[in-house]
């Protein structure tokens, strides 16, 4: 039962980051995570499905490169924690949360591609707290596009992109989309 590919048609307007740009953003965020936490001890990276997961894996790879420590990587499916389950047309497909270790007393870095209203992150925070009691939770995103509806901010941002609500940010990752890059589009 795959959900409909996309409700609105989107026209791509411009590329914000190419493959190299995305790689550099990930590299910088990895450095910032290490710097903020004084190393990579006790780190757990948790990607929000879907595109947060490959991004978390890339960050973990970089962190291992720089610090020699391989932080565990998990995947979070926030579907069951959404605040709009009663209002959307039918139940979304759930693909499962998979966090491979206990997160008690760890520093969890939540990873997602785009930060927009903040509702996805709110749902992810609720789910994380049901999984354990981390020492701290930090948020890393590739693009912060503004328009927050709840008081949430990112600790690590690849790029701030001011947008209008009609615009769409597309973060493409090789693992899912076949190529790397970030572009901005407009709903038609």
């Amino acid at each position: 039962m795959p959900p409909k590919a996309s409700v609105e048609q989107v026209r791509e307007k411009a590329e914000i980051l190419d493959g190299d740009g995305l790689r550099r953003a990930v590299t910088r965020i990895a450095h910032e995570i290490i710097e903020r936490n004084g190393g990579a001890q006790d780190l757990v990276l948790v990607g929000i499905r879907r595109r947060g997961v490959p991004l978390a894996l890339r960050l973990a790879k970089k962190i291992k490169e720089f610090e020699g420590i391989d932080p565990p990587v998990g995947a979070l499916d926030i579907t069951l924690y959404r605040d709009d389950l009663q209002t959307i047309a039918h139940q979304p497909v759930v693909s499962g949360t998979d966090v491979p270790c206990r997160i008690d007393d760890k520093i969890v870095v939540l990873v997602d591609d785009v930060l927009f209203t903040g509702r996805t992150v709110r749902a992810a925070l609720d789910e994380l707290i049901d999984l354990g009691r981390p020492k701290a939770i930090q948020l890393a995103v590739i693009v912060d596009r503004g328009h927050r509806e709840i008081p949430i901010r990112a600790d690590f941002v690849g790029k701030n992109v001011p947008t209008s609500r009609r615009e769409v940010i597309m973060v493409n990752v090789e693992e899912i989309d076949g190529h790397d890059g970030v572009s901005i589009g407009e709903m038609l």
């Binding site: 959900p3 590919a5 996309s6 409700v7 959307i88 497909v93 927009f116 769409v168 597309m170």
Partner: peptide
């Protein structure tokens, strides 16, 4: 009818999606 909901992160999906479009 499903009420108009404030959008969560709008992401067009490529390939086989595991989460539905967030409108």
């Amino acid at each position: 009818t499903a009420a108009e909901t404030p959008a969560m992160e709008a992401k067009p999906t490529h390939g086989e999606p595991s989460l539905p479009p967030r409108r």
